[in-house]
Amino acid sequence: MPNQSSALLPDAADRADAAFVRAATRPADVPFVPEVRLQMAEDAIALWETTETARGEIGLPPPFWAFAWAGGVAVARYVLDHPELVAGRTVLDVAAGSGLVGIAAALRGAASVRAAEIDAYAVAAVGINAELNGVRVDAAVEDLLDGDGGPAEVVLAGDVFYERGMAARFLPFLERAQARGALVIVGDPGRAYLPRERFTALAAYEVPVVADLEDAALKTTTVWQLTAAAPPAV
């Protein structure tokens, strides 16, 4: 048998990240999206502390990869119910977290699914979760927000307008993707920094959420499509 290129094999860091994810989570059905199973944690705060200990850093962002956040759940539900959005098309799941949205797209026949994250644990979680659901999602640690998401024909994002700085980078990225012809869909559970005037609502759901992470047991979550910018006034 020919030697397999070492570039195709996970390195020690990748294996360690995957082992950490498996140890910190367990497989479970996703509430409101029972078609998908994810490796999820039971205690957000405890896992957050464990992650900081494992990385040797304080002040890390929450372990988004270990939970099904409302925005992603809503987008996944919408994609599963409307497979024509992704079937046969190239899809980008940006700020993918657990990979829930990308997995939903793969389950509904996307030609290919790429998941982008800046957290190596998230990339490990996406790989594990894709395997758990019997689909392929190509995940990588990368920050794409200075580009336009090309060549993906569909750009999907879960809950990304939760912080002013994040929103300030995300909206121009999504606008560039839309301007080159991509279908851009996001999910949002009422975050303060979503510019609603730039979007058209496609659906709204009452999504069950993790009590440790939100302020209610259910969050009204809207699936939005980015629309073309209005021409400047003359």
Rank of each mutant, 00 (worst) to 15 (best):
M1D: 15
N3Y: 09
L9I: 15
A13F: 13
A19H: 13
A19F: 06
F20K: 08
V21S: 06
T25I: 02
P27E: 04
A28I: 01
F32T: 01
P34L: 13
E35N: 07
A41P: 04
A46G: 11
T50N: 11
G56D: 07
G59W: 02
P61C: 15
F64E: 04
F64G: 02
F64P: 05
W65P: 02
A70D: 08
A70V: 10
G71V: 09
A74S: 08
A76E: 01
A76D: 00
T90M: 07
V91Q: 04
L92Y: 07
V94S: 10
A95H: 05
G102K: 04
L107M: 15
L107V: 09
A111D: 01
A111H: 00
S112G: 05
S112V: 05
V113M: 08
A122C: 13
V123R: 12
A124E: 11
G127R: 06
I128S: 02
N129W: 05
E131H: 06
N133E: 06
N133Y: 14
G134Q: 01
G134W: 03
G134A: 05
V135S: 06
V135P: 03
A140S: 14
A140Q: 14
E142T: 12
G147N: 13
G149C: 03
P151A: 09
A152V: 15
E153S: 08
L156W: 03
G158C: 03
F161K: 11
G165P: 05
A168I: 14
A168Q: 13
R169H: 14
A177K: 08
A177G: 09
Q178A: 14
Q178I: 02
A179L: 10
A182N: 12
A182P: 10
G187E: 05
D188Q: 07
R196D: 10
E197D: 10
A204W: 03
Y205I: 09
Y205S: 09
E206R: 13
V207I: 14
V207E: 12
V209P: 02
E214F: 00
E214R: 05
D215T: 07
A217P: 06
K219C: 04
T220L: 01
W224L: 04
Q225M: 13
P232C: 05
V234H: 10
